[in-house]
C-alpha cells in the first residue's frame, strides 16, 4: 500500500484555551517496501502524524491518499485501512487484555472476520516472527517480562498482515539487548515480507543502523526528509532542535576538521571503521 499526505494540518483543541497546531502542512510520500525512520523531539508531532496515517485522527485540513484513494471521502472503509496500516503504539504492552498470550494475538485477526484456522495460523506465525515459541502461548501476558510483553503486542499487529507497519518508539524503556533484539527482528521482517516499516524514535543512534530514509519532524513540520547520511550532514541544525546525529558522525566530522581526508557520510559504526581505516591508509 502506498500512502501519500497532502498539505496535512492538525489543530489540537481548536476553540479552547489550549489550542495548538500539532501538524503544519505535511507532504509525504510513503512507497512500498521501504524502511523509514521518523525522528523528532518530544512534542514535535510525530505521534500525531502516524495516527493520521491509519485514520485514527482526522486532519483539520488536507488529505491522505491510500493507494490513490482519499481516506477522508465519505464511505471510505477505515476498518480495512487500519488492517492494512498496522500501528503499534508506545508501550503497547499496556494494551494487552486477554487471559493468555495466544488469545491476545488472535484479537486483531478475529476482528477481520477470518475463520478460526486462519486466525490461529496467523497468530502462530506472528508469534514466531517476534521470536516467541509455543511454550509462551498459554501464559498470561502479565507473567512475562517487559520485552516479551512488548513482542506479544507487536505480534498482535503483525497477525493482521499489514502492508505498512508503524511502530511508535518500540524500544522505549527496554535495555540495550532488548532494544537490539526488537529492532533486529523488525529489520528481518521488513526484508522478508517486503513491507513498509515506519519506525518512530527520538534516538538517531537507534534509527541510523536500520533505516534507509529519515523524516525529521520539528514543531509539527517536516524539517528533513532524506537518506540518513544526507540528514546527518545537518548535524548542527539537528542539535538546535534538540536532536543529535549518531556519534560516528561527530567522530568523522571532527577528523575531517582536523585535516583528515575522510568520508563523513557514514552512519554506522562498521562503516565508520572502514572509513577511518581508509583515511589512515591514504
Amino acid at each position: 500500500m502506498v500512502l501519500k499526505t497532502e498539505h496535512l494540518n492538525y489543530i489540537y483543541g481548536a476553540g479552547t484555551a489550549f489550542e495548538k497546531q500539532a501538524l503544519k502542512d505535511i507532504n509525504l510520500d510513503i512507497p512500498e517496501n521501504q524502511f523509514i525512520g521518523i525522528i523528532g523531539h518530544t512534542g514535535s508531532g510525530k505521534s500525531t502524524l502516524i495516527q493520521h496515517l491509519n485514520g485514527l485522527i482526522r486532519a483539520t485540513s488536507g488529505a491522505i491518499y491510500a493507494d490513490g484513494k482519499n481516506i477522508y471521502e465519505d464511505g471510505y472503509d477505515k476498518k480495512t485501512l487500519r488492517s492494512k496500516v498496522g500501528l503499534v503504539f508506545q508501550y503497547p504492552e499496556h494494551q494487552l487484555f486477554e487471559t493468555d498470550v495466544f488469545s491476545d494475538v488472535c484479537f486483531g485477526p478475529k476482528n477481520l472476520g477470518l475463520c478460526t484456522e486462519e486466525i490461529e495460523e496467523r497468530a502462530r506465525e506472528a508469534l514466531s516472527q517476534v521470536g516467541l515459541d509455543h511454550s509462551y502461548y498459554r501464559k498470561s501476558p502479565f507473567e512475562l517480562s517487559g520485552g516479551q510483553k512488548r513482542r506479544v503486542a507487536i505480534a498482535g499487529i503483525l497477525a493482521m498482515h499489514p502492508d505498512v507497519l508503524i511502530l511508535d518508539e518500540p524500544t522505549a524503556g527496554l535495555d540495550p539487548r532488548g532494544r537490539d533484539e526488537i529492532l533486529d527482528q523488525i529489520e528481518k521482517l521488513q526484508k522478508e515480507q517486503k513491507i513498509t516499516v515506519l519506525l518512530v524514535s527520538h534516538s538517531m543512534e537507534d534509527v541510523a543502523n536500520y533505516v534507509k530514509r529519515i523524516i525529521v519532524m520539528n514543531k509539527g513540520q517536516v524539517l528533513y526528509d532524506d537518506v540518513p547520511s544526507r540528514v546527518f550532514e545537518h548535524y548542527q541544525e539537528l542539535e538546535t532542535v534538540g536532536l543529535a546525529a549518531p556519534q560516528v558522525t561527530y567522530v568523522t566530522q571532527t577528523l575531517k576538521s582536523q585535516g583528515w581526508d575522510i568520508d563523513t557520510s557514514v552512519t554506522t559504526i562498521e562503516e565508520a571503521k572502514q572509513a577511518i581505516l581508509k583515511a589512515l591508509n591514504k
Binding site: Q51, N54, L56, K79, R82, S83, G86, L87, V88, F89, P92, H94, Q95, F107, G108, K110, N111, L112, G156, I157, M160
Partner: peptide, 13 residues
C-alpha cells in the same frame, strides 16, 4: 483515549 485508539488499530469496534 489511548487504549481505545490502540484497540481500534487492531480492528476493535
Amino acid at each position: 483515549d489511548k487504549i481505545m485508539k490502540a484497540q481500534m488499530a487492531r480492528g476493535a469496534d
